[in-house]
Nucleic acid binder design. Structure first.
Length: 487
RNA sequence: GGCCACAUCGUCUAACGGUUAGGACACCGCCCUUUCACGGCGGCGAUACGGGUUCGAAUCCCGUUGAGGCUACCA
């Protein structure tokens, strides 16, 4: 059997990281099995529809490297891939169920349903549609029902759940799940506005689109029995199910919009590499066995399998995500990094050659998490020093060091090749000659050249900055602070 | 409340029924070192609890507890 899976978001906002993980697992599963990945937009709730949401969803998915074989944009032989465009199909499907006795009409208002629920809760029973007392085809009879519809009364269509059956299905991740029909509510299939609910549309589409595996979040597990009933009512085989563990926040509750950023695009904006983000997300709830932490997308595809997906929810740990990003930052080609932040560099008003930018990135990349930090972290590589760190200045700048530093720069001045190795030889000779140490000598030099107390290798910093700039800073510093030993 | 599913270091996780319960993030220490990092080495730290099955249980079964999901004319 060929593998066909789908990612089926609602266009209600932005792509949630949990949604991305679901999409990713579907994608990895499809690619692993040489199957097809389908995007279907589930927009049956027009009250929650958000303009441009679909575009945003697709943009985030594409950013992560998840593309589709069939989608609203690409089309495909099972289209359309937007549920609102499949309206007729659901209508006909619902009619089939009414005709074959697996669904029925109901005319209750939402107030009446609310009242029913309150009665049930007060009585301590589970809220469920009460076929015996409510205004449905059950209590009204077929003739009266027909008449009410003919008269233009609003109605819904409900699934007639077999009360005396035990529903069983196999979940690839969780094993067999068993639910008693008595526990299942008569789910609304068609709303009074004529639109199908998720349950109907989902089952109809998955069947007609020949979906082989439904891989979705655990929040769908409780409604899966309803879906199984639906497939049976239609006389269809149901696809295989795999319910993914939830992504949790620090409080171990389902990651949601209410608690910090969960929109994928926020992470894009923050500067995460897609490879790092995908790598991190993939390992949240799945592990191929072993100690490997860094996986390329091809490695993920190669080793992915549903059986290894965990059952328990996984907390989304930003610190590990940061670490993951820094790992990728260190291993990425310099030209890629340089091109990535070039627009940002220009935006800051810095006019530098790409080669120079690459050198600077290489200089500081082990000290930062995001490539975008470079212009701030090492601003002194792009413009004049804005200020000297006061504590550092007061600690290291005095009459002795001034004399010492001047002597060192006299030696540096003789250098034609202003590079790391040459600088190192000169510096070491000078240390031996003056009987000082690297630290006390170079700390003030760092202050003079960068204004800061921390940073990358100082010799490399000076070499990249070049002799002219280095001396410009030295001369400026001396002209301003010679004899001034406290700020 | 009911239903469903879940439970290994703080977090992500590994472990044919036989391991000193392994790795990673975070944290701490040491080394490296001009600073800060990177890196290397080491430390801290877990099988929720109680019963069973078994020669032997993190692993299988039952119960308890805990935390979660669902309980919409939302998905």
């Amino acid at each position: 059997m060929s593998v066909r899976v789908r990612f089926a978001p609602s266009p209600t906002g932005y792509l949630h990281v949990g949604g991305l993980r679901t999409a990713l697992y579907n994608y990895l599963f499809a690619k692993h099995h040489n199957g097809k990945m389908i995007l279907r937009i589930e927009d049956t709730d027009r009250t929650r529809f958000v303009e441009n949401a679909q575009e945003n969803l697709v943009k985030s998915l594409l950013w992560a490297g998840i593309d589709f074989d069939e989608s609203p944009d690409k089309g495909g032989e099972f289209g359309p891939y937007v549920q609102s465009e499949r309206f007729e199909m659901y209508k006909q499907s619902a009619q089939i169920l009414v005709d074959n006795g697996n669904a029925y009409y109901a005319f209750d208002t939402s107030e009446e349903i609310d009242a029913m629920r309150q009665r049930q809760q007060a009585a301590g029973v589970a809220p469920r549609y009460d076929r015996t007392t409510m205004k449905s085809q059950y209590t009204l009879g077929d003739e009266a029902t027909k008449q009410l519809i003919a008269d233009g009364n609003a109605y819904v269509i409900r699934l007639k759940v077999p009360q005396d059956e035990v529903i069983r299905f196999k979940d690839i991740i969780r094993g067999e799940v068993v639910v008693n029909g008595k526990e299942i509510d008569d789910q609304i299939l068609v709303k009074s506005d004529g639109f199908p609910t998720y349950h109907l549309a989902n089952v109809v589409d998955d069947h007609h689109m020949q979906i082989s595996h439904v891989i979705r979040g655990e929040e769908w597990l409780p409604s899966t029995p309803k879906h199984v009933i639906l497939y049976k009512a239609f006389g269809w085989e149901h696809p295989e199910f795999a319910h993914l563990p939830l992504l949790l926040n620090d409080s171990k509750i389902k990651l949601s919009k209410r608690h910090g950023d969960v929109a994928v695009e926020d992470f894009i904006t923050k500067g995460f590499f897609k490879e790092a983000f995908v790598n991190f997300i993939a390992l949240l709830g799945w592990n191929p066995t072993g100690d490997q932490e860094i996986f390329s997308i091809d490695e993920l595809i190669k080793s992915f399998n549903l059986e290894k997906v965990n059952k328990a929810g996984a907390v989304f740990d930003r610190r590990k995500l940061d670490w993951m990003n820094s790992q990728y930052l260190r291993s990425k080609p310099l030209n890629e990094l340089a091109n990535r932040i070039l627009p940002l560099i220009k935006e800051k008003g810095y006019n530098v050659e790409i080669e120079y930018l690459e050198k600077v990135i290489n200089l500081v990349k082990e000290r930062i998490t995001f490539a975008e930090e470079v212009p701030d972290f090492a601003y002194y590589m792009f413009e004049d020093i804005k200020e000297y760190e006061v504590d550092y200045f007061n600690k290291f700048w005095n009459e002795n060091t001034e004399k010492l530093i001047k002597g060192l720069f006299d030696k540096y001045d003789k250098l034609d090749v202003f590079e790391h190795d040459a600088l190192e030889v000169i510096t070491k000779d000078y240390i031996a000659e003056t009987n000082t140490k690297f630290g006390p000598l170079m700390n003030p030099v760092r202050l003079i050249v960068t204004g800061k107390s921390v940073g990358a290798s100082l010799l490399d910093t000076m070499a990249i900055l070049g002799k002219d700039k280095t001396f410009e800073r030295f001369n400026y510093f001396i002209s301003k602070y010679s004899g001034v030993y406290s700020l």
